[in-house]
Write a protein that binds this DNA or RNA. Structure first.
Length: 493
RNA sequence: GCCCCCAUCGUCUAGUGGCCCAGGACGCGGCCCUCUCAAGGCUGAAACCGGGGUUCGAACCCCCGUGGGGGCACCA
């Protein structure tokens, strides 16, 4: 644990779509800081937009986080001292603070209709002016406005952004960012449906929940000064702000988006489905925007908790590199204990419709471990272990630079050699087959190539001799017999 | 159009004024190992966006360009 004060950090996604790797990284950094400092990691759902609400999205967020191992200490499902953790259940707080802002002279009621606003925008566009609220209701007499509200007229509450001067907001990675207040708008804080907009809701909650560090995407940088202004207007102490750069397409052109889904998987649960380990995914994501030193790249979650530091965060955008994900995933697969790997492999093999025999699974796991990068590759390389029979392509049973007849002879003699062995443990089996190859003036590659096709039905597989041992003498002999038949029937044709 | 951010190999990055004719990783090429595929080992090509300053000295500091990205909703 570090010497930093316990941090209270929150991950605050909106349930408007699927959970992707960008969100996962933000959540990871939140989690790391909380765990490293002995603080709390909080999950808060920002569901104030009823139009964009997607049923099931909240569930996917939680399922993804749990799968990744990023467990939260407070959240909508488990509660906590600052409940509720779903913004739709906190409307009274937002309304209260919006009114408070009005009372303090930092906000005002606005009765402009959406129609007038879009009209206004159109005009400004035509005149090539920046699209901004014209302050129509800002000038209204507060008493009069209150009266109209009391009369039941539809209204929103806007922030009364100072017309003059400038505001400086401090981002941990970028330092002070100063903007002219005149470039800011009188943003709507409370919508006419009584629900808040992000600008209000997030500030209120972060303050009420005593959040110490805010990690969020850099898309919030343009309105960052507004958020600071709100804090100042309410006399609140600001958290430490950390804006994380966004993820770019693999091409580096444009930000990663839904459109990439399908081509490049960006959703956490899809990546899980594809056979990625949470460990691999986490390792990959952690290094996009953060680094430890000039050589260490392999990290477990515990190591990340130990080594993470705000100082090593990087502000520039990062293009997503799936090749590197494969690399990390392969590394993590290889670092798993065989028993553990077997447990992880099981569902993926079953997903392929294979009947998984536990004894065989245990035996082949070490064989598979060195050669897969994702869990779903196991079925490709070792599926034949679970098949009752294999169907080799007869033409592939012919050895390299060999005739059909030579291949038949080689296969038959292999049968005899194997049959004569008391057991087919790796050592004696390999020795016997190598002797046979030599006798027949074949290279080991030629002989093993034929047998590989005969036994596994495929060109690429786990190591031949070891695989034969697992399959067992009788079945090996069956498969070789089958291969001889195939070769002969093909010869007759 | 306006505002904001960013800028080291193709990609992720190390580098915080001299340790850098720039280090690591992925990917790519070659070699070795080898029963296939991997894994592993060795090895090669590959970058400080440009121009001005500041300084004895700049990848590192400042300015201006340029490029890239983001934002400009009663979305988050």
């Amino acid at each position: 644990m570090s010497d930093l004060k316990p941090a209270r950090v929150r991950f605050a996604p909106s349930p408007t779509g699927r959970f992707h790797i960008g969100g996962a990284r933000t959540a990871l950094y939140d989690f790391l800081l909380a765990r490293q400092t002995g603080g709390q990691f909080i999950l808060r759902i920002e569901d104030t937009d009823r139009k964009r609400y997607v049923p099931g999205a909240e569930g996917e967020i939680m399922e993804s986080l749990r799968w990744l191992g990023l467990d939260w200490d407070e959240g909508p499902d488990i509660g906590g001292p600052y409940r509720p953790y779903r913004q739709s259940e906190r409307t009274e707080f937002y309304q209260q603070h919006a009114e408070n802002l009005v009372a303090r002279g930092h906000g005002y009621y606005c009765f402009c209709t959406p129609e007038r606003l879009s009209q206004l925008r159109k005009q400004q566009q035509k005149l090539k002016q920046p699209p901004r609220y014209d302050g129509h209701c800002r000038r209204l007499d507060p008493e009069e406005a209150r009266g109209r509200v009391a009369d039941g007229e539809s209204f929103v509450i806007r922030f009364k952004t100072p017309r003059e001067g400038s505001t400086t907001a401090v981002d941990l990675l970028r330092g002070p960012i100063t903007v002219e207040n005149s470039t800011l708008d009188d943003y709507i804080l409370l919508k006419s449906d009584g629900l808040p907009v992000y600008h209000l809701a997030a500030m209120v909650d972060d303050h009420m929940m005593k959040i110490s560090h805010v990690f969020r995407g850099s898309e919030w940088l343009p309105t960052f000064p507004l958020h600071v202004l709100i804090y100042e207007a309410l006399d609140w102490e600001q958290p430490i702000w950390v804006h994380l750069s966004i993820f770019l397409n693999p091409s580096g052109k444009g930000k990663m988006s839904k459109r990439d889904a399908g081509v490049n998987e960006i959703y956490v649960l899809d990546l899980k489905q594809m056979g990625y380990l949470p460990e691999g995914l986490l390792n990959w994501i952690a290094l996009m925007g953060w680094s430890y030193d000039d050589r260490t790249e392999f990290f477990t979650l515990d190591e990340l908790i130990e080594k993470f530091s705000l100082q090593k965060l990087h502000p520039s955008p990062a293009a997503v590199d799936y090749k590197k994900l494969d690399h990390f995933n392969g590394n993590h697969i290889r670092s798993l204990a065989p028993d553990e790997l077997a447990d992880r492999l099981r569902p993926y093999l079953k997903m392929e419709g294979l009947e998984v025999n536990e004894g065989i699974l245990q035996q082949i796991t070490p064989l598979v471990q060195e050669r897969i990068r994702t869990l779903d590759e196991a079925a490709d390389i070792a599926g034949f272990f679970f098949h009752k029979t294999v169907e080799p392509d007869p033409s592939e049973l012919i050895g390299k630079n060999m005739t059909r007849e030579e291949s038949i002879v080689a296969t038959r003699r292999s049968y005899e050699v194997i049959e004569s062995l008391p057991t087919i443990e790796v050592e004696p089996l390999e020795a016997a087959l190598r002797v046979l190859a030599e006798e027949m003036n074949l290279t080991a590659g030629q002989l093993f190539g034929i047998l590989r096709i005969a036994i596994t039905g495929q060109r690429i597989s786990t190591p031949l001799i070891e695989s034969m041992e697992v399959i067992g003498k009788q079945e090996v002999l069956n498969r070789i017999t089958r291969a001889v038949d195939l070769l002969e029937s093909q010869a007759e044709r």
